[in-house]
Nucleic acid binder design. Structure first.
Length: 651
DNA sequence: GAGTTTGAAACT
DNA sequence: CAGTTTCAAACTC
């Protein structure tokens, strides 16, 4: 905001577009962040998840990678040096923001700053497809959200209804169901709101993020130097050059948002770059993948991939480990992010977050000042930010962060699997291995993206839920047992098969996931403190939780109330990561995890995500964020609800 | 840090 | 689908 010249034509223009005032943008920021998280919808990878999904993933994850990856050593240097300037790629912001960009009044025609017109076309198609792929939505947390985001981002502008319509008209668009788009478009007002914030962001935000230097080298430079070009409305253009002076302070929020956006965009941009550069790096990717992910093709590993902190792979479901990792990553982000914020990208998970999450973190950090109530130490701020975002962040998370640095640093140690099997925690969690990993002959790196994706596909073909979150909340009456109201209501998707551990050690996935055993378990001598297979001892849970709470070693479990519509198990974790919810139902509003109040308030909608830690501790919503709630809601809605729940086998 | 245990994942 | 093998995390010392 500060950077913005309120008097500038651009600003005026923006104002005219949106009722929202810049000042409020802050809230939006969070909201936005939330979106990011939210972006991931649910999740289960369904068998359908096709390449599309993958592709999306790739993009995402590129985002994540982007943070570093894009930067070549050279870039990195420049970026770093310039970082002060906020390398921030305008692109990211711009593109990404596009999402928000209501402003984006944009012409659909706008060519992304990136300049990849053809890409865009692809993207368009892709977008169209995405909506369809309910499956995607369902399946890939990343994917679902991504499409929109990416689209917007890639295109550099968010599509307005008109745009959307146009898209529909596109050849591929036919795949889209009208409903899908409708849902997307459905609420203009909301959309506007949503956008407006972003607009603000756009304007206000400097591109601090250096996230995608590569991507936007041009854009960025231009952006930084230039001022917003409203004309095309493309976000990219739109961007206001925040000059180097990114305000670290207030703008920081925006910055965070941007980053997220950037991440998404980055993917796309990355891909573009990668295309240029690589083609062959990766080995064999099934055509399907390629076709599906037009952009995916040549992924560039950001520098080897090593640099990239974990990159989230597309569409992978949450993994118990992932959760922990995420936590860890987040933490890391905090520390690092404070500085430049690039590092943040790490989203885990999945993560989801991935990416999103990672960014979120970043955002949080950077944003922290604005949000933070208490302004405590950076850490606190970050945590607050998390909570504020409604992340899955729950106490557990906090605990984990506090306690678990070691945990956070955990990485895989694969010797023979090449990190391409589910044995590998990183791979299973949908993230690339990073340097901290002690793996040998690791193929789970961006550089081998194609291989990774191909392997993923293969595994999914064998078991569609292989990458689905392992712990899910079952509201299914059938499965639900007495424990249903407790965190234990979450259950391991497959159940454990413990023979000797008594389900009291982390060998047991149920225990590890902080959930009780269920009828799905074949365990012997179950003593799971979170809930025995027979349903007894739930009372122990509380105690256990408390105990565990201390170490925070156990992953938190999100509870998602069963969505009648989506039979898919809501993956707690995923949601948590991405914060998205089931967009499926029309109007369903996503709730922030952990904010019980909100949940209650919005319960009517039906889809609710709750975050619970195994501890059952209640997560208290950030006080300061109240205003944000509304924004979140807006966001949620503004996020296109995924049209069809029905899995679209066809990608 | 090395070795053992464990159970999921993968294979047959 | 069941049995076996492989694998890497969790655990123990």
């Amino acid at each position: 905001m500060q950077f913005l010249d309120f008097d500038s034509p651009v600003f005026n223009y923006i104002n005219s577009l949106s009722p929202i005032k810049p000042v409020k943008s802050v809230h939006f920021t969070q909201t936005f962040s939330t979106l990011s998280f939210a972006s991931l919808p649910s999740v289960f990878t369904s068998p359908h998840v096709s390449s599309l999904k993958d592709s999306k993933f790739l993009k995402r994850h590129q985002f994540s990678d982007t943070s570093k990856p894009e930067l070549t050593s050279e870039d990195a240097k420049t970026a770093d040096t310039s970082e002060g300037n906020l390398k921030p790629t305008q692109n990211p912001l711009n593109q990404h923001t596009g999402l928000n960009s209501s402003i984006s009044i944009t012409d659909t025609s706008v060519v992304p700053s990136n300049g990849c017109s053809h890409l865009e076309s692809r993207k368009l198609i892709y977008e169209a497809v995405c909506p369809d792929t309910n499956t995607l939505n369902m399946v890939d947390p990343f994917a679902s959200s991504i499409p929109f985001i990416n689209n917007g981002s890639e295109n550099g502008s968010f599509r307005t209804e008109t745009e959307i319509k146009v898209i529909n008209q596109l050849p591929h668009s036919k795949e889209l169901t009208a409903c899908d788009w409708d849902s997307l478009i459905s609420d203009d007002s909301e959309l506007l709101n949503f956008n407006s914030p972003s607009d603000t962001l756009m304007n206000s935000q400097p591109q601090a993020s250096g996230d995608n230097p590569s991507e936007n080298d041009e854009g960025m430079q231009g952006a930084s130097e230039n001022h917003v070009t409203v004309s095309s409305t493309s976000l990219n253009n739109f961007e206001v050059p925040m000059d180097d002076t990114d305000n670290e302070g207030g703008s920081s929020l925006y910055r965070g948002m941007r980053r997220r956006c950037l991440l998404f965009e980055m993917t796309g941009s990355r891909r573009k770059h990668s295309e240029d550069v690589s083609n062959g790096s990766s080995a064999n990717v099934p055509e399907s993948n390629q076709t599906i992910a037009p952009n995916d093709n040549n992924l560039h590993p950001p520098r080897n991939g090593n640099d990239s902190s974990r990159c989230i792979l597309p569409g992978i479901g949450l993994h118990i480990n992932a959760i922990a990792s995420n936590l860890v990553d987040h933490k890391v982000v905090k520390h690092e992010s404070l500085g430049s914020g690039r590092q943040l990208i790490i989203a885990p998970s999945a993560g989801y977050p991935s990416t999103g999450s990672g960014q979120e973190l970043v955002t949080a950090l950077s944003d922290a000042p604005p949000f933070e109530n208490d302004t405590g130490p950076a850490v606190n701020v970050a945590e607050d930010a998390f909570k504020a975002r409604g992340f899955v962040v729950n106490d557990e998370l906090s605990q984990t962060e506090n306690a678990g640095e070691a945990e956070a640093c955990k990485r895989c140690n694969c010797k023979k699997s090449k990190c391409l099997k589910l044995y590998c925690e990183c791979f299973a969690a949908g993230v690339y291995c990073v340097e901290p990993c002690a793996c040998h002959e690791c193929f789970n790196k961006p550089i081998h993206e194609d291989t990774v994706l191909a392997t993923r596909k293969q595994i999914e073909s064998r078991n569609p839920l292989a990458f689905a979150p392992k712990v899910i909340k079952t509201s299914d009456p059938m499965q639900e047992d007495e424990s249903s109201n407790t965190p234990a209501s979450a259950r391991h998707k497959r159940g454990c098969n413990c023979k000797k551990s008594g389900c009291l050690k982390k060998y047991c996935e149920c225990y590890q996931g902080g959930v009780g055993c269920s009828i799905n378990c074949r365990c012997e001598g179950c003593k799971n403190t979170f809930g025995r297979k027979d349903g007894s001892d739930m009372d122990l849970e509380a105690n256990e939780c408390d105990r565990n709470g201390g170490d925070g070693s156990l992953p938190m479990v999100l509870h998602i109330e069963a969505d009648p519509v989506s039979a898919t198990p809501a993956t707690p974790s995923r949601f948590g990561r991405f914060g998205k919810l089931n967009p499926f139902k029309g109007g369903g509003k996503l709730q922030r995890v952990g904010e019980n109040d909100i949940l209650e308030e919005n319960n009517t909608s039906g889809n609710i995500v709750k975050s619970c830690s195994p501890n059952s501790k209640r997560v208290s919503p950030p006080h300061s964020i109240m205003g944000q709630r509304s924004s979140m809601k807006l966001i949620l809605q503004s996020i296109p609800s995924f049209p069809c729940l029905t899995p679209n086998p066809k990608q």
